[in-house]
Amino acid sequence: MSHSAEEVQKHVKVYITVFAALMVLTGVTVGASYLHLGSTAMNITLALIIAGIKGTLVAGYFMHLFTEKAIINWTLALTVVFFIVLLLVPILTELDTISLI
């Protein structure tokens, strides 16, 4: 087995710390939504940054991505590229209204 009992014991402490951080950040997410940052876009940006930090904690520690083998991380890097393309698709619907010249 790749994980010895002692190693796992150390991991458990990390998991509990990450769990506490996730709980705090969930509170921060709600709190931040009451801030008036000047525009909706700013509030969305802040909310997505916090969600991104939480997501990184879950994927990095609970899903072991920080210590995972290269093939998994490369697979996901490719997924991220396609995901970004997917999120940019709505821009294509605006292309006829944007003049590049």
Partner: peptide, 13 residues
């Protein structure tokens, strides 16, 4: 993970 993004996007913004 999906819910972590759904929560602010749908409920808070």
């Amino acid at each position: 993970l999906v819910w972590i993004f759904l929560f602010p996007v749908l409920y808070l913004l």
